[in-house]
């Protein structure tokens, strides 16, 4: 099994638009001069796809000429390896998915399928809500895309309400479509967000909050209970027991953008003491 770093040696480093990051077809004729045991990144990428491995390209990446993975944006190349959701039974071991994206920081949101976003209801039209997700076009959210919703039992959301949902359709030629249910028709944490407060942060910070060990959230969680809904569109909803705590969380998250873990811990400590 290949790790993501073996497939893409440039993971974790800065890439620029136009940089070729991997070739899907090269590799079978790996240079014998490399000697036995040394596989180039390309050959292992080729082997990976040949053995049923799949690639999932996220923001900032494009497939050029059908075979080359190239960067279309400047940023840090990031990725992870996971199991494909369709893999079952005997071929489960081979259906790995390499997820790849370029982490850059920007305010504008470009919708991508399956991303979790925080939207603001701006209108009701017929059988759907119109939701502002901070993208160029607003998304539609069907009345039926809520847990337990039926034609008779419609969700009752006011204009201006916040919703946390997933993008079911997102491509550049169509209006994005949002849903508040997962594949099993369950809310799974999605739906209306009541109370709390919304902060606007960059896409880079958002992805860091969603990483496995978000330093600022861990540091805050040691002091009090907090609730977040992190939208990849740069909107993060936060809630806590008192407004003072909400303000503290909002500022701690926004301040943490350009800080190291040690600095974040010190900052949170200072804010909590001042509370």
């Amino acid at each position: 099994m290949a790790t993501i770093d073996e497939l893409f040696p440039r993971i974790g480093s800065v890439v620029l638009p136009g940089d070729a990051l991997g070739d899907l077809e090269a590799g079978d004729s790996a240079d014998p001069a490399d000697g036995p045991g040394s596989t180039t990144s390309n050959s292992s990428l080729h082997a990976f796809t040949q053995h049923g491995g799949r690639l999932r390209l996220g923001p900032g990446l494009a497939q050029e000429g059908g075979r080359v993975i190239a960067a279309s944006r400047a940023g840090v190349l990031q990725g992870s390896m996971g199991a494909a959701s369709t893999g079952t039974g005997a071929n489960a071991h081979s259906s790995q998915v390499a997820r790849l994206y370029i982490a850059s920081s920007q305010k504008r949101y470009v919708p991508a399928k399956d991303e979790l976003v925080v939207g603001i209801i701006t209108d009701r039209m017929g059988e759907a809500f119109k939701v502002d997700i901070g993208a160029a076009a607003s998304a539609s959210l069907s009345f039926l895309a809520f847990e337990g919703a039926t034609k008779r039992n419609r969700p009752n959301l006011a204009i201006g309400a916040l919703v946390y949902g997933k993008l079911a359709v997102a491509n550049k030629d169509m209006e994005p479509e949002m849903v508040c249910i997962d594949a099993a028709d369950k809310a799974a944490g999605m739906g209306e967000l009541t109370g709390g407060y919304l902060i606007h942060i960059s896409s880079g910070l958002t992805r860091r909050l969603l990483s496995r060990d978000p330093a600022v959230l861990i540091a805050l969680g040691k002091h009090f209970a907090l609730e977040t809904a992190i939208g990849l569109n740069g909107r993060t909803w936060i809630n806590a027991q008192t407004p003072q705590q909400v303000v503290l969380i909002a500022n701690a998250i926004q301040n943490s953008e350009f800080m190291t873990v040690a600095q974040i811990n010190a900052m949170v400590q200072r804010l909590v003491q001042a509370l």
């Binding site: 603001i120 006011a158 201006g160 309400a161 916040l162 407060y197 909400v246 303000v247 500022n251």
Partner: peptide, 27 residues
Amino acid sequence: MKDTPLSNNERSFVQGAMKSGLRVDGR
């Protein structure tokens, strides 16, 4: 482009904070 709409949550939080002498950026 139109401005980002202000959500009800933000409105009520900021108003509530202002009324209790608290500010959203901790000032």
